[in-house]
């Protein structure tokens, strides 16, 4: 079973829920796809191994370049510029599409590997943990996310901590999931972003359910929406200062006083997936 945890808004409790679900599922693999804010791994361990992830960027051979500017004109990302008689590459804008090399009539463009980021991995007890890290200044970590997702064994249980928002990297991270857990706060803002991610899960026709994080006495806003779209509320994580304190220190709250809340959510998910 593969569970994806997502939320439209940052700070809604996505990572909190994902790490604790993984913690409770014996032998599960945890995949942290939030490569721009890679914190999930640290809940499990302080140290981890690093694997480098590379992308390709063009290198111009100035001796062969005839300054025809075909590559400059082709590049949709403006990653190549005409620099006073030379063509200059701006790696931070390059999407590694390979187009410039194809259009160069003089064979003056080759590609070289450039470090895009890392995959961080470790094993803790019976869990395998994978996370990624995008180097500062790099625009997109989609290829790191693809590599992290490839680490999951489809026969084993895994939990995916998706990136925030609704961009292409979120789509990538839910594409193989059996179930999507949507985390929302019971506020007008939370609801707005919940609607957004729910629409996303619909595109891939994924089964989904809602967990209300920072739950208070009245969570009617989100409950009413769940009723309207006919998806279940899987559980509630309370709005509690002690929980927030433990979580801010990257402690695994499901090992302590708050275990029952996460057990409840997990049991509900198991039931939903089996239907």
């Amino acid at each position: 079973m593969q569970i994806a945890v997502l939320s439209g808004k940052g700070g809604a409790g996505k990572t909190l829920l994902a790490v604790n679900l993984a913690n409770l599922i014996e032998g599960s693999t945890f995949l942290d796809c939030d490569v721009e804010e890679p914190n999930g791994v640290f809940y499990f361990a302080d140290t981890y191994n690093k694997e480098e992830v590379y992308t390709k960027i063009p290198v111009i051979n100035d001796h062969l370049c005839k300054h025809c500017n075909k590559c400059v004109d082709f590049c949709r990302y403006n990653a190549l510029i005409d620099f006073l008689g030379k063509v200059k590459v701006l790696p931070s804008l390059c999407h590694s599409c390979g187009g410039c090399q194809l259009v160069c009539p003089h064979g003056a463009i080759k590609e070289k590997d450039e470090l895009l980021g890392y995959i961080n991995y470790t094993s803790v007890r019976d869990h395998k943990i994978f996370g990624g890290e995008l180097r500062i200044g790099k625009e997109t970590g989609v290829s790191i996310i693809e590599k992290i997702l490839a680490k999951a064994n489809t026969n084993e249980d895994s939990v995916i901590d998706c990136p925030p928002g609704n961009g292409c990297s979120v789509m990538e991270s839910i594409s193989d999931a059996d179930y999507c857990v949507l985390v929302s706060e019971p506020t007008v803002f939370g609801l707005e972003n919940l609607k957004m991610v729910y629409d996303l899960t619909k595109i891939y026709k994924k089964k989904s359910g809602i967990v209300i994080n920072k739950a208070v006495e009245d969570n009617g806003l989100v409950e009413a929406y769940a009723k309207e779209i006919h998806i279940p509320i899987l559980g509630y994580i309370p709005f509690d200062k002690n929980l927030a304190l433990s979580n801010s220190k990257l402690e695994m709250v499901s090992n302590g006083a708050f275990k029952s809340y996460f057990d409840h959510v997990l049991n509900r998910i198991k039931k939903e997936v089996s239907i």
Binding site: R76, N78, D82, F83, L84, L90
Partner: peptide, 19 residues
């Protein structure tokens, strides 16, 4: 002319300055 470029309007401006 690069006003509405999705990417790298600043890069194009630098190129313009050089030209």
């Amino acid at each position: 002319t690069f006003l509405n470029e999705n990417h790298g309007a600043g890069v194009k401006t630098a190129e313009f300055l050089l030209k």
